[in-house]
Nucleic acid binder design. Structure first.
Lengths: 318, 318
DNA sequence: CGGCTTGCGGCCAGGATCCGGCCACAACGT
DNA sequence: ACGTTGTGGCCGGATCCTGGCCGCAAGCCG
């Protein structure tokens, strides 16, 4: 049997975090113990440390090394990873959206179709934060990401700010995550210019398979291009609060992402916070485990808080 | 150079979702084009479909097949996957917690220490749902999972229901996720009996490296054992609501995980829902985009709703 | 301490493979 | 029609892989 395939199987056996005796392994791989020892040695040469123990109940086990060995996944694990990455890519964890999309693109590229269906089925069951539903369809995101990577042309329908829908043909350059939203920079073929698009406004994206040589972006990088484009847009919703208590006391009671309370007098703090979803901001304020006073807030925010209050009232008064 | 290593490098190049010409690939791998063709053939034999195109701008690309090829990740991607799986394992996505833990255990086992630190740093920055913070430390979960898998003894400190803390030595059998919580079944060595523990009440778990032959659990499987143990516990919080509107109208406005509204009369529905976190349930009810009436709810739930109302009131009245 | 188990790695010989080079051929784009 | 690029058969020589054998070392147990 082919040594390459055998090494991969050995790796996959060792990755199950189990203690394997030499006999078990050589039995499963259908080779002599001597060959197994050589295979283990080969793995070590490749940089994947296999720990061994001798004597009664001795055997082999894979340990953490300096590089990551090829991950051999079964169906379920692959689905779990895909689902986890999708939520992460949608901003559930801040700071790794872009990497999540990259990893997801890599996985998606090789994911058998039967598993894709399972991923989708599970993603539907994703528990969303109440009132916070605005997110991109990960499939759209993936199509864009793969078109970027493979420098393929992309055709899609785009809903502009004013609600008008157009059909576009572009050469996507890069995806960028900003403020819990996905944008991408692309060369608009019809208009002959660089444009920034919001991924959540893209419908029916389709990579037509036409490969084109990558273009040079007239900016330092895609992120700064998007930032420049965004600078002229309206700000998301913000609020300023006065909280009762010292900064010390409030630490741990104010969620991390809301920002740091700043001392303001002996027994109160100022909290300057914001979010780009109104309902979400309202809930977060109402859930603050502290005596709070709203110093600044748009009328919409006040309206959202009032809505929340009214609903809670209706529910508690029979 | 070793063919095994070369095949892995080839796989890693192909996984970047790019179009590679034969010359590029054979150049990178430092072999002749003929050998590259043979390597590609070998990949195909292993079941990983490599698509090719001929003619000008021809080349190779990895496609989705029937099985998942070994995933070759760089540092950042591995971190993103680990973080994504941690959130998924903590119940952010329902239904795949157990698989996420399994995949995470596999990854964790081989994750270099430098990356572990990065995963932890990022996990701290995880945005949590306001008011919903009860979760297990993923490191604790991992230690337990790996002790189960490797049938190692585990020592830890456990906080019982009444708050008393004890030190335990057990042989862990299996992790089980139920109702957004993690439990595990283990043979308690000191007490000589099977016990169910809650993972979030475990502190300082330590696998002492002592391997023991697996014991047989006196139940069909671990999940049913946990269910039996849980049956005598108090139920999580529940509520029954009457919503205005037909089932048709309410579909899409009621979050999936809350359950299905059931028609009750011509223009109203009954919704029977529950959660095991009081604050979370209260928010979810208050955020329902429908005219609602609370038919049944424990006094605690009413109190939580009142708290929410009061806070929203304070914020809107200056 | 001695016996048992289990892994280690050197050595050997026969056989399988791997590799590069060559070639006629088949798609594909221009 | 022509150039480009991948395909796969064939060949010869170098390399390797494998299994068997061995003496050895490291744990475990009594």
């Amino acid at each position: 049997m082919d040594p390459t395939a055998r090494i991969l199987r050995l790796l996959s056996l060792l990755q199950t975090y189990r203690h394997w005796s030499g006999d078990e392994l050589s039995g499963r791989l259908e080779v002599s113990p001597r060959t197994l020892r050589r295979d283990v040695e080969r793995l070590r040469d490749l940089g994947y440390p296999v720990e061994t123990s001798r004597g009664t109940y001795g055997g082999y086990q894979l340990a953490a090394g300096t590089q990551i060995p090829p991950l051999l996944l079964d169906d379920e694990e692959a689905v779990a990873i895909a689902v986890g990455l999708r939520t992460a890519a949608n901003g559930a964890v801040s700071g790794i959206e872009e990497t999540s999309v990259r990893a997801l693109a890599k996985l998606q590229q090789v994911l058998p179709t039967r598993l894709r269906r399972r991923v989708e089925a599970l993603a539907v069951a994703t528990e969303t934060v109440p009132g916070y539903t605005e997110s991109v369809d990960p499939d759209v995101l993936m199509t864009i990401a793969q078109a970027c990577r493979g420098s393929e042309q992309l055709r899609f329908h785009y809903t502009a700010n004013d609600g008008s829908e157009t059909s576009r043909l572009v050469e996507p350059h890069r995806l960028v995550s900003r403020h819990r939203r996905w944008y991408f920079v692309a060369w608009d073929v019809d208009r002959g210019a660089w444009r920034t698009f919001r991924a959540d406004r893209v419908a029916r994206p389709f990579a037509n398979g036409v490969r084109v040589p990558p273009r040079e972006l007239p900016a330092e990088d895609a992120a700064s291009f998007v930032d420049t484009a965004l600078r002229s847009r309206p700000q998301p919703f913000t609020a300023v609060l006065r909280l009762r208590g010292t900064a010390e006391e409030l630490r741990g009671r104010v969620p991390h992402w809301m920002g740091e309370p700043v001392a303001d007098g002996t027994d109160s703090c100022l909290l300057r916070t914001g979010a780009d979803n109104l309902e979400w901001l309202a809930i977060s304020l109402a859930m603050l485990d502290a005596e709070a006073e709203l110093l600044e807030g748009t009328p919409e925010l006040v309206a959202a808080l009032t809505r929340l209050r009214t609903r809670a009232e209706r529910l508690t008064v029979h």
